[in-house]
């Protein structure tokens, strides 16, 4: 298509990192900038954690030294973005990238479009590892095997409990927040299992969730399978130990959403899907940058936001 719109910078992802990058670029007077978000609203992962009376606030706003709901934090970031001149495309997904030409193919409400840019930021965030990716978790493919994203979706958008007797697989901060949300919404005390000997969430992190949940912990599970015929009835280890329940939540252990880079031919390490960075946050093709949780690891919303903002300086230098 010859009518591809051209921008100075294109940002893929409207979560904290993408918003941070857009705000940072606006502060430096770089423009025009376009931000592309595949969901219908800005805010990314934290936006899924709705503010609810009696709910569990799981996000830390370090700058104000307090604990908040993800929705509040993401909402404040989106407001800051609204004050800039950034063009925003909601409900629009980048389906293909041509890294050398910095040409993007988009699918949105107005159909398939293309755009080009001088620089691109991948701020696509991360998702939770699937059972198949974990490698030590197999078993039946039943209903009610879900992720933390489903816990927040069912609870915060529909007031529905994904399980009354949940088995949480994973033990990091995200797993604890899922357990706390389930318990606060009226589930039984969750059973928590992981491959690690002791929970990967630290002492103070566990202490924070103590008010809501004290999961029934089992560590050192090296091979296990989901049980159940139609819906999950628990998890069983290969040595015969069983953790009964009526739903299994596979939580935490994030995987970067690096597929655009992978399928576009940018350097990505397999099978971990980690971006192979040239230097700092620059990807293998000049003019391509990454920000936020797509870089790997798992960071809070504010870390991602400031990571995006700091990246703006790097991009401005590149554009000069």
């Amino acid at each position: 298509m010859s009518d591809a719109q051209h921008f100075k910078v294109v940002i893929i992802g409207g979560g904290p990192a993408g918003i941070g990058a857009a705000v940072g670029l606006a502060k430096r007077g770089v423009g025009p900038v376009v931000l592309i978000e595949r969901r219908a609203e800005l805010g990314g992962t934290p936006m899924g954690y709705r503010k609810k009376p009696g709910g569990v606030p799981t996000f830390v706003e370090w700058t104000r030294g307090r604990v908040v709901f993800g929705e509040e934090l993401a909402g404040r970031m989106a407001k800051r973005l609204a004050k800039t001149d950034t063009a925003i495309r909601l409900g629009t997904q980048v389906t293909k990238i041509d890294p050398a030409e910095k040409r993007l193919t988009l699918l949105g409400p107005d159909g398939v479009r293309e755009l080009t840019a001088d620089a691109a930021v991948l701020a696509a965030g991360a998702r939770e590892q699937t059972p198949a990716e974990k490698g030590w978790l197999a078993g039946a493919r039943t209903a009610r095997v879900g992720f933390t994203r489903h816990v927040t979706g069912w609870l915060d958008r529909h007031g529905l409990l994904p399980a009354r007797k949940p088995v949480v697989v994973g033990s990091d901060l995200i797993a604890y927040s899922a357990a706390a949300k389930l318990r606060a919404a009226g589930s039984d005390e969750p059973v928590m299992i992981d491959r690690r000997q002791s929970p990967s969430a630290g002492f103070f992190e566990r202490l924070f969730f103590w008010r809501w949940t004290r999961p029934d912990w089992s560590g050192g599970v090296t091979a296990a399978g989901m049980k159940g015929d139609r819906a999950a009835t628990g998890v069983q280890s290969s040595d015969g130990k069983e953790w009964p329940g009526d739903g299994v939540m596979v939580c935490g252990e994030l995987v970067p959403n690096s597929e655009l880079a992978l399928l576009g031919g940018l350097a990505v390490e397999l099978p971990s899907r980690q971006l192979q960075l040239a230097r700092g946050q620059a990807m293998s093709e000049p003019g391509w940058f990454a920000a936020g949780n797509v870089l790997g690891g798992f960071h809070g919303a504010q870390w991602c936001y400031f990571n995006g903002r700091r990246l703006a300086k790097r991009i401005a230098t590149f554009l000069e």
């Binding site: 209903a143 009610r144 069912w154 529905l160 994904p162 399980a163 009354r164 139609r230 819906a231 009526d246």
Partner: peptide, 11 residues
């Protein structure tokens, strides 16, 4: 449901 009665997506 995922695949018919008994496989409801939520409890």
């Amino acid at each position: 449901t995922k695949n018919g009665p008994g496989s409801e997506l939520v409890a």
